[in-house]
């Protein structure tokens, strides 16, 4: 594992409740990385928090 990979910060945004397949992919993508998540489907999202998280991460994946 490279140092660069160790440092990667990845944010998973869920637009709806994740399916088992999405959970499998998220697990692989998050392995050995600093991973966090944000649920857009859960009540009234705090978009200020979301934007802050996006800019604090190296990569964002927004699942269906």
């Amino acid at each position: 594992m490279s140092d660069e990979e160790k440092k990667m910060k990845i944010l998973h945004v869920y637009r709806s409740e994740p399916t088992d397949d999405v959970k499998t992919l998220v697990g692989i993508l998050s392995r050995d990385r600093d991973a966090s998540e944000f649920k857009l489907y859960d009540g009234d999202p705090n978009y200020d928090v979301l934007v802050g998280m996006i800019f604090a991460n190296d990569r964002t994946v927004s699942w269906w």
Binding site: R15, L40, P45, Y47, D48, L50, V51, G52, F55
Partner: peptide, 16 residues
């Protein structure tokens, strides 16, 4: 399906 999210994120981005 996501217009409220588009506008919500855009407004937050402007605020930031």
């Amino acid at each position: 399906q996501n217009m409220r999210h588009v506008v919500g994120v855009a407004r937050a981005a402007v605020r930031a």
